[in-house]
Nucleic acid binder design. Sequence first.
DNA 1: TCTGGGGTCCTAGGACCC
DNA 2: TCTGGGGTCCTAGGACCC
Length: 396
Amino acid sequence: MGKVIVHIDLNAFFARAEEIRDPSLEGKPVAIGHDGRSGIVSTCSYAARKFGIHSGMPMFKAKELCPNLIIKPGDYRYYSGLSRLFFKFVKRYTPLVEIASVDECFADFTEVVKKVDDVPAFFRKMQNDLFTKTQLKCSIGVATTKFLAKMGSDYQKPMGLTFIRKRDIPAILYPLEIEKMYGIGKKTAPRLRSVGINTIGDLALRCDNNDSDLINIMGKFYQVIKDWINGRGSDVIVSEPEEQKSIGNSSTFYHDTNDFNEIKHMFEQLAEEVSSRAIKENKMGSTIQIVVKEADFVVHNKSLTFDNPTNDYKQILGIALKLYEKNFLSMTVRLVGITLQKLIDPRDMAIQISLFDFEKAEEDNRTRLLINELNRRLKKDSLMRASEVGTKEKKK
DNA sequence: TCTGGGGTCCTAGGACCC
DNA sequence: TCTGGGGTCCTAGGACCC
């Protein structure tokens, strides 16, 4: 018997949150996002969607489609409070809850469901209880794997409840357009269509035949997709929040610029944000990456790895500026960002050295590669000796 | 008035060594 | 002296998701 994996997705979460706070908004076209030159729609209510508005759309375009659109800037503190309520609600049913993002989670209901007679009625009640207690609306997907549960919660919105057993895959998923497949984005979808794969059903058929076009397009992801679509995907719920891998901040200029002072000022703000978040979360990183987006949207990254992890504002700023000056000076840019990577908890660190500058970091980098190398040789050497000893002892 | 900001993971090439 | 293949780390770029 397989597991019972559930995916719960809050419908139009930010927009719904605004409606909960101000019921007069209910039924009206509401969009969350910055109403500025380069603002885009983060989320919008179902009433707004009827005008053709969707997330990711430039705000000015949304206003064209719907002149009466109500625009809210987004109150993320409030949203995350509601979000915590939602997870708390789900955890009352089972501790096996994997938080996937602010408005969705997976949960393992295998044991819960064993005590239930009418399973669809049970989930319908859960959905209604969430609404009564928090006013939040959700869609629920119930399946044997995380992928199928996710596709299930996406199938009917809002307040949908969809069961996808393995035998339901052809009826439910096969007719869907290829863009509906989780993991297929706007780059891969056109490539799949160009080789005649237009629906998930087409994809499934070509997977069965180990189609070479498909393998070429998908690369390593091919096997994963094939498993997903055949109902063999992962059913493992990771309840512990995973260690964060990076802390970053980026910002788009009001106007594209090559004014170094302006850019420097932006880097100062970004470094301050990254540093304070890292300190707050008790993290230090030993790689600093800057990202630069040109006026034509071409993105460049430069990074530097060094020996002694830091979360110090001055060090982060210093490295970011050096990377910028070295690679992008005089470039006209749209956005810049700083990301701190290779995070560790400083409490796990044995040594901390405060001396720090860019040249030293670059030198450290070379030194560290050498140390890595020596370390490997040492390991190899000791292994060899161990095996030599083993041989000698055998001979005895 | 075209196109945000937070992330994660994968790939491919270069450097380096055995 | 020439050469192959395996392996790891760093870096830059890309794709995707919410």
